[in-house]
């Protein structure tokens, strides 16, 4: 696709159009999510002060979770497809999904910590979801480091895909063991159940805002995914040309 674009620079490929549309949508989605989260949504009625204010980070928090989840599911699926078809595009998609998913995953952990401080009075707690999110981020950082260590392009794709599949398989087990682990772990804050403290009732404007945020972040994720995917494709092409000239 990119080769035809370079041959006829004025012609728009479907990929170019998709990229432009998604880019515009993503900017719109970002604006809409911010507006909904900060202006449209009513404050949580059962919270007050800092807690009430901090609750609004919830929309971004849930949004980033959607982005991270989408990234890791796409990477898992495209790894399987790569191993079956052996088309490098699937490996590029996997790498792009991991990289974009990682940004959202780190966003999830950081927004979670910011929210936890006023609500639970600590940045860090061994909450099973927080633990799982953090470990998953580490797993995918390891994936990127691993890819980096393999020179042959085909081997990198094959080994990366195998690791991505194995790594993904451990995530549910991590979650369950983290959940059960808490039952014997000393509890940092008064209550057994983290949901009980800092919880709130979802009103109608809050529900709508949550929907806007989640869809908005999926659109932002898709736009970044397409951009990064095309970038990786160009990078491979550039490397091959460089190799040929060398």
């Amino acid at each position: 696709m990119s080769t035809s674009a370079s041959a006829r620079p004025n012609r728009w490929t479907p990929m170019d159009i998709a990229q432009l549309v998604l880019g515009v949508l993503a900017v719109g989605a970002a604006v809409a999510t911010m507006w909904a989260a900060l202006v449209y949504a009513r404050p949580a009625t059962n919270l007050a002060g800092d807690e009430q204010l901090a609750q609004r980070i919830f929309y971004v928090h849930m949004g980033t979770i959607m982005g991270a989840l989408a990234g890791f599911i796409v990477s898992f699926a495209s790894s399987i497809v790569y191993l079956i078809t052996r088309k490098l595009d699937w490996d590029r998609l996997c790498q792009a999904a991991v990289e974009v998913g990682l940004i959202f995953g780190m966003g999830t952990v950081v927004t979670g910590m910011f929210w936890a401080k006023p609500t639970w009075n600590t940045y860090w707690t061994w909450d099973p979801r927080l633990t799982t999110a953090t470990i998953t981020v580490l797993v995918y950082v390891a994936y990127l480091l691993f890819r980096n260590g393999i020179d042959n392009r085909q081997t990198r794709a094959r080994f990366g895909s195998i690791y991505a599949i194995l790594a993904f398989s451990s995530v549910p087990l991590t979650f369950f063991s983290a959940r059960w682990f808490r039952s014997i772990h000393p509890v940092v804050f008064g209550n057994e159940n983290p949901d009980a403290q800092g919880g709130f009732d979802i009103g109608s404007t809050m529900g709508t805002t949550l929907g806007i945020a989640m869809i908005g972040f999926i659109i932002i994720f898709s736009a970044l995914l397409v951009l990064r995917f095309r970038q990786l494709r160009n990078e491979d092409e550039l490397n091959e040309l460089r190799e040929e000239l060398a």
Binding site: T155, S170, F176, S177
Partner: peptide
């Protein structure tokens, strides 16, 4: 997987430990 990678000796624990979290916790 890591045997043919550069710096395999330091890479293996980085690949392995996050995946081993369920075994470790259990």
């Amino acid at each position: 997987l890591s045997a043919s990678a550069r710096a395999r000796e330091s890479l293996l624990p980085i690949l392995l430990l996050p995946v081993m979290v369920p075994v470790f916790m259990a």
